[in-house]
Write a protein that binds this DNA or RNA. Structure first.
Lengths: 124, 124
DNA sequence: CTTGTGTTCAACCATAGGGTTGAGGACAAG
DNA sequence: CTTGTCCTCAACCCTATGGTTGAACACAAG
């Protein structure tokens, strides 16, 4: 349903059950029934979860007779990792710089807020 | 609302607007109004988003007169990174091993599925 | 064909989420 | 105190989501 892939992946992993399923799928592929066993929800619910994971690109489904084993895909992990690391790095770098900035900053200068409170009716 | 921290963080980042806010906060702290400017939603909506990010531990709020600048926190990133890397590593390792396993595996042995379809009424 | 197993589809229910509008609280400045 | 700015709270709407049950589809096997 969600448009962008990143949202789908994050959203898929926002559920503890789904995260646990992913964790278990790192051990081995598994069918819906196998996956459903530990949880106290219906098989249909697990099937839905699996669909969410599949839509997010986290798992692929194959066919073995009546069974549809789920297999974990690792590509999408990179998507998240890259996003996270990118901004984590930027944030931490900024954090490091902050000391310098603060050290050379008099009180009447505020670099982060170029928009000081004007008199009134400050348009644009 | 979500119990565990990991769910909260993933859930918080499952929204494109919130991810964009995080991205912008890596550049500099910002107030609600500043954050709201680029989006065509109300300030209240952005305030809610900010609350979600704060509840997830991704941002902290400070007080500057009437303003409540948001500051990005980097700790929580580690939480995600660790989870992701852990299972990504396990998945990729398993992927590498798979070749070996398949090579030494006759058709009638299936290590991943100890529960072959029994006659009928397979209890437990 | 009939039965049985594994899985999904469809309809439905309850709750959470993102959005809105409107009111109100916290401060700064007249 | 009154006004104005920044922000949040509350109520409400609508859709998404996770769960259920019941039916149906896909195969395997009698």
């Amino acid at each position: 349903m969600a448009a962008d892939p990143l949202s789908r992946v994050f959203s898929a992993l926002a559920d503890p059950t789904r995260r646990d399923m992913v964790a278990r799928l790192t051990v081995s592929d598994a069918t819906v029934n196998e996956l459903a066993e530990p949880y106290d929800v219906t098989v249909q619910a697990v099937s839905k979860h699996l669909k969410v994971l599949a839509d997010a690109g986290l798992v692929s489904r194959t066919r073995q007779a009546q069974r549809r084993p789920a297999h974990l895909e690792t590509e999408v992990f990179d998507l998240m990792t890259k996003w996270i690391e990118r901004y984590q790095r930027r944030a931490e770098e900024r954090y490091r710089r902050l000391d310098d900035v603060l050290a050379s900053m008099p009180d009447d200068v505020e670099p982060t807020a170029p928009r000081q409170p004007p008199k009134t009716g400050a348009g644009t």
